[in-house]
Simulated assay, not measured.
Amino acid sequence: MPIQLCCPICHESLATTPSGVCCPGSHQFDRARQGYLNLLPSHKKKSKQPGDDNDMVAARARFLSKGHYQPVVNKLVELIHHVGGHVGGEKIRILDAGCGEGFYTAEIQQKVSGSDVCGVDISKPAILSACRRSKDIEWLVASVSQLPLMGNQFDVIISVFSRTDWQEFARLLKPGGHVLMVTPGQHHLLALRQLIYQDVRPYPEDKRVQDLPENLSLVNSEEVKECMVLEGAETIMDLLTMTPHYWHVKPEQKEKLEQLTSLECELEMRVSVLQKR
């Protein structure tokens, strides 16, 4: 059974049509020639072009394609195989909520055999880039806070450096399903941040796991640590551009970064595993 979509307007189930999808209320959504569906109604947008812009998406695609964050992919795949054991002979169904340009989504789809995967992001440029990574994933332009998907159908939800909506995640998960949330560790990208800020403080512990609904509980938390060796100014600038720090860098700091030929930088991320009871 394919991933079950729901209408973002009336919340009824969407059925496949020759041109896209349609609900019983005759709300129709055409599938773009690149393969994705735009299920973000215009009145739900808070800006004309919400989410990451073209420059951020291109920088992230270049940087991640070089494999610097591969240890995070490996940890996610390991955990999916571990928590997905209850699925048995059925296909494991995975949602990447806030998938960006699809790096993690496509890697997971390739490495977890027998999986049905859906990637959702509010940024249209990000989803366009994601479509170039894989044609075997259901790519959707939509908001994480109002996911156009029918409930109780996913075994695993991935959230990598993205906003979370616990009520939506709990609605979409099957009983016993899991959320894998990736957040920055205290010293993530410390060397880069030291080049930008005078006073560099450790990232605070993520407090989102302290505000869970009753039917979600934290069952495990693991760290992923590596030392990345970034070669070339383009790679260093791509890392900067794909982070929120890009908006705080001063022109003279940017010029200094553009002159670097290499940078040793910390990769430190925390993967929190939550389960729906």
Rank of each mutant, 00 (worst) to 15 (best):
Q186R: 14
S134C: 08
L230K: 03
S262N: 09
V182E: 04
L260Y: 10
S19K: 14
L192E: 05
P148G: 12
R208N: 12
E214T: 10
D121M: 06
G89C: 06
V182P: 05
Y197G: 01
T16Q: 12
R31M: 11
D52C: 13
Q146D: 15
P175L: 07
P184K: 08
K135C: 06
S143G: 11
P251Y: 02
V112N: 06
Y197P: 01
H248L: 02
K46T: 14
T17W: 08
Y69V: 02
G102N: 08
N54W: 01
G177E: 05
V57P: 01
A97E: 02
H248S: 09
G177I: 05
V144H: 12
V209W: 00
L189P: 01
V182N: 02
Y104N: 06
A15I: 03
E90R: 14
E222Q: 15
K91R: 14
P50S: 08
Y203V: 08
F169T: 00
G176H: 09
L240C: 03
R132V: 00
R33G: 01
H68P: 00
I196Q: 07
P2D: 12
A15S: 14
I196V: 08
P71H: 06
N38T: 06
G35P: 08
P204T: 08
I158R: 03
D52F: 13
Y197C: 03
S129A: 15
K135E: 15
Q49F: 13
E101T: 10
R270W: 01
C7F: 12
K174H: 07
V229R: 12
L267I: 07
T164V: 15
G35K: 07
E223A: 15
V120Q: 04
